[in-house]
């Protein structure tokens, strides 16, 4: 019964290919095949949000996406939020606000924030807290993440 599929998808703007089992998790493909290890596994059940990526522009938990459903899609990971290796606008706001402690939930938190800023121009504290509720953090109490996202929303240019 074992068989693999040829998976082709765009990751952080680059077309990538992998030979994988059709039920393999997008998370494992990103980490093991493409070595994009910024995306983390915290629970494997879509609860903690550490594995979040943007799939065709929307946030998903990559531990719950089977390879076969990622065919032909566009994926953005935390590595793809940087601009030429330097922090993008959102990452810079996180840095200023000291919004990372152990750093393990941070990639998921950044992806959730990026997703929010796509949907909402200038999110306030309530919208931000709602948008981050799918990413569990055990270090911070969330205050600095919320501040960072509100700051990023308020200061971004014409994007």
């Amino acid at each position: 019964m074992a068989r693999t599929i040829e998976l082709e998808l765009t990751v952080n703007g680059t077309l990538r290919r992998a030979e994988v089992h059709p039920a393999a998790r997008l998370l494992d493909i990103l980490r093991d095949e493409f070595r994009l290890v910024g995306t983390k596994e915290g629970c494997g059940e879509g609860e903690c949000g550490a594995c979040a990526v943007l799939l065709d522009g929307k946030i998903v938990n990559s531990c719950l996406v089977p390879a076969i459903q990622a065919r032909g899609s566009e994926v953005v990971t935390v590595e793809g939020l940087a601009v030429e290796g330097q922090p993008g606008h959102l990452q810079a706001a996180f840095e200023t606000a000291n919004a990372a402690q152990c750093g393990f939930c941070t990639p998921g938190m950044l992806v959730a924030a990026a997703d929010l800023l796509h949907r909402c121009d200038r999110p306030g504290e309530t919208e931000t807290r709602d948008a981050l509720a799918g990413t569990l953090c055990r270090c911070t109490g969330y205050v600095k993440f919320v501040d960072a996202v509100v700051m990023a929303g308020g200061t971004r240019g014409g994007k």
Partner: peptide, 22 residues
Amino acid sequence: AGGTDLMVLLNAGRLSDLNLLD
């Protein structure tokens, strides 16, 4: 379909249905 229930079971090694129709 979206996998938000079945992939949880698959991850945990508890999905007894071996043939999936996407």
